[in-house]
């Protein structure tokens, strides 16, 4: 078996989701190589070469790949994929956007968002918002897979000494004029990344306003955690879209998840129910969130959260 992992990075550093994808690859077994495609990727390639258990880093360095547009990356990945039995990418917005294009060109039915490796062709993946787990066995010659980061531990970023070389024959493959990057608005924060934080404090509709979210942030900061939100809070404009935890937002599984003013819709539970310890703070004692919470506190959040922040 030989596995190619598509690195997710910003041309400066590797995204942690890639390390979880590597752990999934190790569970499959075989040689593991990493493709680093971008513009000015030397630092990322060096970082990848140091990851434990990797054989080879393949780089494609081109100004055409300065932004990870699926239209530009797909021909590069298809070229790199030649000879591999498995192509893996993280199930992040990057991997979800790009990998199905690769699968279609390889005429492969992709397996999305795996949470467990059974063997080299059989995998578990959640369906129906995580209310059912499907075990699927692929009959395709090549397996194209995205990996749910929260389901696999991060591989060690140190101890490896993989070789680094440029991918042969990749010149010009990223050239295309159908899609172009215009702009981005990224949330800037000193807090840990939501999907890899060990503590997440999330607010829901009950928080009431963007200003009130300050009490959620204060608790998260005290605990060294990330801030999340329910769809209702995002739709109401309290916080940006990238805070959303749920079936269609981010999937998290921290050691501690504190849900504040969140009722607990199925779609939200799908994004956090694998957390190790769940705390719910809500004034409505019948809120469904209490059915999954290890510790429930029926209390007004404006009273409970500041108290908790002070005493923790």
């Amino acid at each position: 078996m030989s596995i190619l992992i598509i690195a997710e990075h910003d041309n400066t550093s590797l995204k942690p989701a890639t390390l979880s994808t590597i752990s999934a690859a190790k569970a499959i077994g075989g040689d593991i190589d990493i493709l680093v495609a971008g513009a000015g990727v030397d630092a990322v390639a060096t970082q990848c070469a140091a990851i434990d258990g990797i054989t080879k880093i393949l780089t494609v360095d081109s100004a055409d790949l300065s932004h990870p547009l699926a239209e530009a990356l797909t021909p590069v990945i298809v070229k790199a994929a030649d000879g591999y039995t498995h192509i893996l990418a993280p199930a992040t917005s990057f991997g979800k956007n790009t990998l199905p294009r690769v699968a279609a060109l390889l005429d492969v039915q992709q397996i999305s968002d795996i949470t467990k490796v059974i063997d080299d062709d059989t995998f578990e993946r959640p369906v129906y918002a995580g209310n059912a787990i499907a075990t699927v066995k692929s009959s395709d010659a090549v397996k194209v897979i995205t990996v749910r980061g929260s389901a696999f531990d991060a591989a060690s970023a140190e101890g490896g000494s993989a070789s680094v070389s440029a991918l042969d024959g990749a010149e010009g493959l990223g050239v295309q004029d159908k899609a172009s990057f215009v702009s981005q608005e990224l949330s800037v924060s000193d807090r840990p990344e939501l999907t890899s934080a060990s503590v997440v404090v999330s607010g829901g509709r009950g928080v009431g306003s963007a200003e009130n979210f300050a009490i959620i942030e204060a608790l998260a900061d005290k605990l060294g955690g990330a801030v999340g939100a329910s769809r209702a809070a995002v739709d109401a404009g309290y916080v940006p879209n990238d805070y959303q935890v749920g079936q269609t937002g981010k999937i998290v599984a921290p050691d501690l998840y504190i849900a504040v003013g969140i009722s607990g819709a199925i779609q939200h539970l799908a994004g956090m129910k694998d957390s190790k310890v769940i705390v719910a703070i809500n004034s409505d004692e019948d809120a469904p969130i209490f059915q999954v919470a290890d510790y429930g506190l029926v209390m007004d959040l404006f009273e409970a959260v500041p108290q908790l922040t002070e005493k923790v």
Binding site: V108, Q109, I111, T122, P126, V127, G130, N131, A132, I133, A134, T135, V136, K137, S138, S139, D140, K273, I278, V279, E285, F290, Q291, V292, A293, D294, Y295, G296, L297, V298, M299, A304, Q307, L308, K311, V312
Partner: peptide, 27 residues
């Protein structure tokens, strides 16, 4: 289909926990 569905199972249910009555008890 290219994928054989070997089985579809119910995920392990999270057992509901306990209610605590104060911030101190929670901590």
């Amino acid at each position: 289909p290219r994928l054989e569905v070997v089985k579809v199972s119910t995920p392990p249910a999270r057992s509901g926990g306990i209610k605590v009555d104060s911030v101190d008890a929670l901590l």
